[in-house]
Every structure is written in C-alpha cells, then in structure tokens.
Amino acid sequence: MDIKILLIIAIYSILIQNFVLTRFLGLCPFLGVSQKISSAVGMGMAVIFVMSLASAITWAVYTYFLDPSTSILGFFFSEETLPNLTFLRTIAFILVIASLVQFIEMVLQKKVPTLYRALGIYLPLITTNCAILGAAVLNIDGFSAIGLDGKLTCIQSVVQGFSAGVGFLLMLILMSGIREKLELESIPESLKGVPIAFIMAGLMAIAFMGFSGLSI
C-alpha cells in the first residue's frame, strides 16, 4: 500500500479541493448548523463518520455488483450475459446512504446512547447532504488532478471520504467561529444572516485558493 498517495488524497480533500469551498457540496448544513461552534462540531463529526462508512460501502457495492469487470454476479452469469449495471449507480448509492444513516441511527440509539444524544439530531439531515453522495461518486470517477484517473481503491476511497469529512468539519468550525463574531458586528440589515455568510465563504474560498498551488 502506498502511504504517500493516501497522504496526498488527504491533503487534497481537506485543503486544496475542500468540498464546501470549491465543490459547493454540503452547503445546506454548512449554512444551517454553523451558527454555534458546539452544533458545528456535532454535525461535522456525524458527517465524518457517515462519509467514511458510506465511501467503503458504496465502493464495495459498485465494485462487486454494478461493475461487470469485477462483479461477483459472474458466478451466476456467463461472461457475455453479465449485465452492465453501472447505470444504477446513482440510485444504488443514494439507497445505500439512506439505509446506512437509518442503521447508524438505530445502532447508536441502542448501543451508544451518549453518542446518539450528541449526533442524533444531525443524522437525519445527512441523507440529503450532497457531500456524502458527492464523495461516493467522486471515488468512482477518480481525481484527475492528483493523478488518480480511474476508480480509487477501497482504502483510498475510505481515506478520501474521511478527509473530505474532516475538511467539512474544518469549514463548519471556521464558519461558526466567524458567525459568532459577526453577531456582534453592525452589518447592513439586508445582509444579515445568510447573505453575509455567503460573502464570508467567498472570502474564505479566496484564502483557500492559496493551497491550490501546493505541488504534491
């Protein structure tokens, strides 16, 4: 296993192509739960957790069921009749994510009630968080920028999902810190709330563009 490429993926997903700032994924929770640092941390942790798991499971579903070249359905079909199911990708992924979130919610509620109390209210929101589906789709499409042109391996996918989640948490914390301060500032009435949050995000995106020059 090449550790270096994993590190590159992590740096790339957290800083260079931050999901929120350059791919605009997960904006709804980014604006919705970034008013207070405590809820930002809760949401971020829940996203990291679900995103890492979802990356692994969607990768396995794609590899072993949908992609005819690696499908285990090969046991039942001959080479010629083996169906190419890659067109079911979107529907399969969103179902996997929705059931995964439900499942995590049930398990946490029963087994780890403390964690459930901390993350519980954020979990239902995650199903429609486009960052999760985005991460799953990107794992299959690959990252041309860092020389990964095809589908990632399983480990790479999990690392990618995890670090994209970390990048999301980082943005949530930064944003909520800024918004807590903004509360006390005198800004034009019409820019209060969401509009100023967007403009702040734009400024942060400019700052993060500095990372895109990193040669990795």
Binding site: F24, E189, I196, F198, A201, M209
Partner: peptide, 25 residues
C-alpha cells in the same frame, strides 16, 4: 477572473440574496 472561480459564486449569491432581502424590508 475571480467571478468564474469558486469564490465569485459565493459573492454573487450572497449579494443577490442581500438584494432580495433589501427589497423585502
């Protein structure tokens, strides 16, 4: 150039939402 880069998107939508809110107010 910044307008077609990601930050530009945030600025445009932020200001648009601001204008909507302003006319509402």
């Amino acid at each position: 150039l910044i307008m077609i880069l990601p930050p530009g998107a945030f600025f445009v939508i932020g200001i648009l939402l601001g204008i909507f809110k302003w006319s509402d107010l």
